[in-house]
Each structure stands twice: as structure tokens, then as C-alpha cells.
Write a protein that binds this DNA or RNA. Structure first.
Lengths: 293, 293
DNA sequence: GGCCTTTGTTCACATATCTGAAGCAACAGG
DNA sequence: CCTGTTGCTTCAGATATGTGAACAAAGGCC
């Protein structure tokens, strides 16, 4: 895994809401999860872990959720959920309907979560760089960070002309399916890559790279050239170019441009690519000079 | 006991941290059940409450925080903090430095918190309306929501021309000091207003309204006219106009335009105001038709 | 280096949470 | 109106957490 000197727990892959637990809850309940996997989900303060796991459940489920929904999703006993939900609601991190029986994410989560952006000394510089970039090339520009097998969008400056934004601050996409992600993955050593990539490379479109070997050689090429490109791999009719901001080793952050897929020539893609690489390099120098890493 | 001079080696003693032992759980929602006893700070699942309170501490403190910093800030025993911090770190909601002794907010908080935006059925409509508005009048436009005595920015479309954004998704400002907030406060009944406003109306600039009576009469005027204006009350050299999106009663959401303060005439302010009111009304009708409330 | 202060970590007991099962409340179908 | 179903709430015992105090480690100051 990318060693940035920042340690944070590895994401224990939580599945979709279809995650049904109660196949056979009778009797012995869910006995200790098989110790096959090293990362035990039983360490630490139970209620604290459960509280944030609940928040994450709300984060990936945009409807009202009932106690029973959450029971199926998390596997926590209904009675335990009862207490947790009321607690989280009382502090404003989740909201309930009038009956107090359906829940969803609250504003506090937004307010607190977005503070991540203020906390990061990179952001002011990145924002400025994005604006320079957008003004130079006119396309929508993104700044994103690698988080495990995904990229997280941190900031966007939209095209002066085009319709509307594709992404949003805080949204994640599988790294292997985006120009941003491929640029960042290309920074990893072979075994780091293996460790980070999910078992199955999910396809966002028909063109998404889902073959590990194909991905590996693509990454090697990107590493050589210094920027990555992509046409319709993350979204139909969208072309993207991205370059790592090399102020850390391995790099964790990257910048990209998105443009309407059909109307963009290969030559244009390359032009933007090398420009992007230059802007990213400038930004890196600024950051290093400012002692940020 | 840190009886005097809590000089704490590093410069961590930032302003926000002055909140010494025994932090009160500042009442979040206006709907709050009558706090008969100090029960609200001791009810519910202790570790869960502490976990999110910790997250909020990180949300309002953008430096690395040590265990001792957090002890002073939250009043939780050091030994309890130890476990909580490790737990939160293991699940990725906070990050620690290499030594594992300083902490700050993690990416998970951003990812999960911003999901609030996806969860809200109003957002797609609001975004579209913002874009129409921006294209019509050219200024930077915001969509925000009232949360207790504050407004929270939910979405922004920036001016095609001006320099850079003043605000950010998820940021909060005191309602009484902004056009957005004044528009929303004008929806409240007199006693609701009293209940919501903080004891002391803090001033963001010299022009911020800090007198409750002055604010009340301003709100009455706004209620009549259907939109609010403001010059330099939230930020020097910035003028703002805002109108409530009346799809709920009382309204909770509003739209605004921000423009460079010096160059904008009063007439322009009013022109934008009535235009804004119209767009907000259109949006409301859309929302009501879509069954959103 | 020696001493002192500050900060992080560990431990065993007191205490609060977690939990399964039982108790209700709401609702649909006959 | 009764009855079965589903889902939320409550309760007392089993269990895991919270806590103060002791311990260890890091750093500052002569």
C-alpha cells in the first residue's frame, strides 16, 4: 500500500446493501468471524466502530432506512441498533422522520466531513492550480486522491462552456476505470498494485479495462509518458486526461481534464496531457517549497 | 493537572481548543425534546456519542491533534480516548502520523459526509436551477439550508468571469450575517426566531447586524419583499441577494447571488433580487410537483 | 548527563453496554 | 372484528467497556 506516512485503516470491503446476514441467526448467532482474514473486525471500541459503520451504511444508501433494513445490512442486533440510532440522531448525524422510525444521513455529517478539505494544506494550492489549468485549456478540471482501490474527488473547476459537472466533491470511483486512477496506480510498485486492486475489476462501461494484465501494461506506458488518457472507460462519451502531482512518493494526488468524448481528437488529448503534466509539476514544486508533504 | 499555562509544546493550542474540560453537547436540532435534566449529555450509547463528538472536534480543528489536546477539548479521560482514537483510525475516519500519536480527519469522513448531497432529492433540481440562474445573471450562485442558527452551503455555481469562490460545500456561516440566512430567518415566527438565534450575534464584519431589534425589523422588511440583500455584512466588498425556495413551510432552503460589492449599484441589487425570487418560485413549483417536501 | 515535566500506554476492577427474548403497536387480509 | 404478520421497543442478565492510577517514554532545561 502506498506509504505516505499516513496510516489509516484499510477499508474492510463492505458489500452492497444486498449484504444479507440473517441466513441463520438462530441459536449461536454469528459466531466469531472466521479468523482467516487478519484484520479482525472485533478489535477496538465496539460501539464506536458500529457508530461509524452505521454512518457508512447511510452514506451508501440514499433512501430512508428502517431499523430492520439496517439490521439486515450491518448484522447488528435490532436492540443494539435501537440505541445507536437514537444516539446518532440526538447528536444530529442522522435524521429521522416524524414517526422516529426511518433514518437517513444528517447535515452534521456533511459539515464535519467536508472539513477534511480545510484540514488539508494542499487544497489552497490545488485549487489555484485547477483554476489556472481550466483557464488555459477551458475544460472541466479535477483534483483527486487515491484511497485504496478508489479515487476520491477533492475539488473541481468546471468548464466555462460545457453543460454540467460529471462529478462531485467526495465522490469515489474505481481507480482502474479512470484516467486519474490509472495515473495514480502507475506510481505503485508491482506488489503494491496487487495488494490494492480489488479481486474483480468492475466495469463502468464496455471499455473499462477489466483485465489485470492489460491494466499492468497500460500503467507501464503511463509511467513512461507521465500522464494517462482514457476514452469512454469511466463514462460513455467522455474523454479524460490525468497526471500525478509528484510531491509525494508514491504520488497520492492527481489532476485531470474531462472533455466531451466525440469531439476531441487524439492530438488534442496529447496536447492537454503534456500541458497537464507541466501544471502538475509546477504545483508539486510549489508544495515542496511550502514544505508540504 | 494542567492547572496553569497549558503551553503544550507545539502550537496546537489553537483558538478553538480553548474549550476546556466538560464540553457541552451544543444542542443541534431545533426540534429537540425538552431537556428536562442534563440528561441529553448522558443519554444514549456513550462510546457512540463520544466517537462523533471526537469527529466533530477534528472537524473544527484543522491541525494534527494529540491525545492530550483532545483530552482538554472533550474532557474524556485519556485512557478512554486512547481506545477511541485507535478504533476510529482503524476504520479510516481519522488518520494518524507515523508515530501514531497525532491525529486528524480521514478521507472516510469526506466520502460519507458528502453522501448527504446524494441522499437529498432536492439537489438535482437545485443544481439545475442554480445553473439557469448563473447563466441568466452571470454571478456566482449558492444554494443553502438553514441548520439551527447557521446556514450550510449545499451547492454552488461560480460566475463565468470572476476570480474564485467565496464558499464551499458544507461550510457554515451564522445565518444573521448573510443574505441567505436572513431570508430564511424571515420565515420564522417570532418565538421560533428567539429560540434559534444565539445569545450573542457575532459580527463577521463591521457591518454585520448584531442588534436583535435591528435584525427583527430587517426580517420583517424581507418578508414583505420576498428577498433579502446585504452589502459587506458577511464579507468586505461583497454584496449578496437571496430568496427562500418556498417548497416547505417554514422554508429551509434558499438561493443567493454573490457579487463584487463596490461595482454593483442598488438598482442592480434589486433587479437580481426579483429575478432570484422568480427562479426560486419556479424551483419550488418543480419540487412540489415532484412530490418533494 | 541528570533531573524534571509532559505525554502516551497499560492494567484490573467497577460499571455501563449489548443482547435475546418477550412485549407492544400497526397493519393487511379474510 | 379477529388473526397473522411485520416491525419497533423494552428488560434483566451476560459481557465488554470505561476509568484512575501506575508505568514508560520522550523531551526540555540547566
Amino acid at each position: 500500500m502506498a506509504d505516505t506516512g499516513i496510516s489509516s485503516g484499510s477499508a474492510v470491503g463492505s458489500a452492497a446493501l444486498t449484504n444479507d446476514v440473517d441466513a441463520d441467526v438462530s441459536g449461536a448467532s454469528a459466531i466469531g468471524t472466521s479468523p482467516a482474514l487478519g484484520a479482525d473486525s472485533s478489535a477496538g471500541v465496539k460501539s464506536a466502530r458500529r457508530a461509524v459503520e452505521l454512518l457508512e451504511a447511510f452514506g451508501s444508501n440514499h433512501d430512508w432506512l428502517s431499523l430492520t433494513d439496517l439490521h439486515h445490512y450491518t448484522g447488528f442486533p435490532r436492540s443494539s441498533l435501537h440505541g445507536l440510532l437514537r444516539t446518532l440522531r440526538d447528536v444530529g448525524w442522522i435524521e429521522s422522520d416524524d414517526a422516529g422510525t426511518r433514518f437517513r444521513l444528517g447535515v452534521k455529517a456533511l459539515i464535519c466531513g467536508t472539513a477534511y478539505l480545510d484540514r488539508d494544506p494542499v487544497m489552497p494550492y490545488a485549487t489555484e492550480a485547477l483554476e489556472r489549468l481550466r483557464d488555459q485549456i477551458g475544460y472541466t478540471c479535477h483534483f483527486a486522491r487515491l484511497n485504496g482501490p478508489d479515487i476520491v474527488y477533492l475539488q473541481t473547476r468546471e468548464s466555462r462552456t460545457s453543460a454540467h459537472l460529471v462529478s462531485r466533491v467526495g465522490r469515489t470511483l474505481p481507480a482502474h476505470a479512470t484516467a486519474l486512477g490509472k495515473a495514480l496506480l502507475s506510481e505503485l510498485a508491482d506488489d503494491e498494485l496487487t495488494a490494492v486492486l480489488p479481486k474483480q475489476l468492475t466495469a463502468l462501461t464496455e471499455l473499462t479495462i477489466t483485465d489485470r494484465e492489460a491494466l499492468r501494461s497500460e500503467l507501464a506506458f503511463i509511467r513512461e509518458r507521465g500522464y494517462s488518457t482514457e476514452r469512454g472507460q469511466s463514462s460513455p462519451n467522455l474523454a479524460c486526461v490525468a497526471a500525478v502531482v509528484p510531491y509525494r512518493i508514491p504520488g497520492t494526488d492527481a489532476m485531470s481534464c474531462s472533455m466531451p468524448g466525440e469531439r476531441v481528437t487524439d492530438a488534442e488529448l496529447l496536447r492537454v496531457g503534456s500541458l497537464l503534466r507541466d501544471v502538475a509539476e509546477d504545483l508539486s514544486q510549489q508544495l515542496r517549497r511550502a514544505g508540504i508533504r
